[in-house]
Simulated assay, not measured.
Amino acid sequence: MIPPTFTLQEAADELGVHYMTAYRYVRLGQLDASKVSGVWQVTDQAIADFRNGAAAGPVARGKRAPWAARLEDRLVEGDAQGAWSVIEAAMASGADVRSVYLDLLSPAMVQIGARWASGEFDIAVEHQATGIVMRIIGRLGPRCIRRGRSLGNVVLGAPAGESHGLPTAMLGDLLRLHGWEVTDLGPNTPTASFLHAVRHGTEVKAVGLSVTHPVHLIDAEACCRAIKKEQPDVFVVVGGSGVSGVSVSDLGADAQATSADQLHELLRAR
């Protein structure tokens, strides 16, 4: 049987709240809803779930609000305003910028990627979500600049053919929070452009290459070896799911990092 659905006004009436209050619940990801032909629709199960959550209360539940799941829901729906509302609500509840990146944005996008890979929805949904997250990062970026003396410059990017720019965008801001200056070259960057950035950058301490799929390892290796040949003192680090299980020496890199914190520690240790 198809579960009963309600318009948002009907859902508001069921919950005994004003329409705009129910709309705010949707925007914050607290009330599950979907747009069908431009109209918000809410299932009776979503209303029951909302009531159960409200009845339990944050103390009784003993858990942090599921911000990542709420954000994921808004991103899948293509709701940019709602996604930003979730971010604002999380920060108002005490989440700092670093937590937003690590505990909301990253888990939400990883889960969306997994759902696309399983065939749950079209790649268009993942691309739309990525676009929204990139705009969110653009709004959060200025909050990642740390005052004081710079630790040096790190050049980030993805090698030729690698189309994913979100990992380095997030990594760059997390490194900035540690006090590094970051030059993010983004996705699909030719080796010559990495070399240009290193030659003309100020106090370039390291180059970080992000690889999300093994098919791009050949280009990543060529890039690593070209940088080390021309600039042997520059620390070359690789990361991303595409380098999992691959020997760093086979790629011509100096090290592998799985997180911004690990990369920061590697750089500080040099």
Rank of each mutant, 00 (worst) to 15 (best):
Gly141His: 10
Gly141Cys: 05
Gly141Pro: 01
Pro142Phe: 00
Pro142Asn: 08
Pro142Arg: 04
Pro142Val: 01
Pro142Asp: 07
Arg143Val: 00
Arg143Cys: 00
Arg143Gly: 00
Arg143Trp: 00
Arg143Ser: 00
Cys144Asn: 01
Cys144Gln: 02
Cys144Asp: 02
Ile145Gln: 08
Arg146Cys: 13
Arg146Asn: 10
Arg147His: 09
Arg147Glu: 14
Arg147Ser: 13
Arg147Phe: 11
Arg147Cys: 13
Arg147Val: 14
Gly148Ser: 11
Gly148His: 09
Arg149Ile: 14
Arg149Glu: 15
Arg149Tyr: 11
Ser150Gln: 14
Ser150Cys: 11
Ser150Arg: 15
Leu151Tyr: 10
Leu151Asn: 12
Leu151His: 12
Leu151Phe: 12
Gly152Ser: 07
Gly152Ile: 04
Gly152Met: 05
Val154Lys: 03
Val154Asn: 03
Val154Phe: 05
Val154Trp: 06
Val154His: 05
Val155Asn: 10
Val155Thr: 12
Val155Ala: 11
Val155His: 11
Leu156Cys: 08
Leu156Met: 09
Leu156Arg: 02
Leu156Lys: 03
Gly157Gln: 03
Gly157Tyr: 03
Gly157Ala: 06
Ala158Met: 02
Ala158Ile: 00
Ala158Lys: 00
Ala158His: 01
Ala158Pro: 00
Pro159Ile: 02
Pro159Leu: 02
Pro159Gly: 02
Ala160Trp: 07
Gly161His: 04
Gly161Pro: 04
Glu162Cys: 04
Glu162Leu: 03
Ser163His: 09
Ser163Trp: 07
Ser163Gln: 12
Ser163Ile: 10
Ser163Ala: 09
Ser163Asp: 06
His164Gly: 07
His164Lys: 07
His164Glu: 07
Gly165Val: 14
Gly165Gln: 15
Leu166Ser: 08
Leu166Ala: 05
Pro167Phe: 08
Pro167Trp: 08
Pro167Ile: 09
Pro167Val: 07
Thr168Glu: 02
Thr168Tyr: 00
Thr168Phe: 01
Thr168Arg: 01
Thr168Asn: 00
Ala169His: 06
Ala169Glu: 10
Ala169Ser: 14
Met170Ser: 03
Met170Ala: 05
Met170Asp: 04
Leu171Ser: 13
Leu171Asn: 11
Leu171Glu: 11
Leu171Val: 11
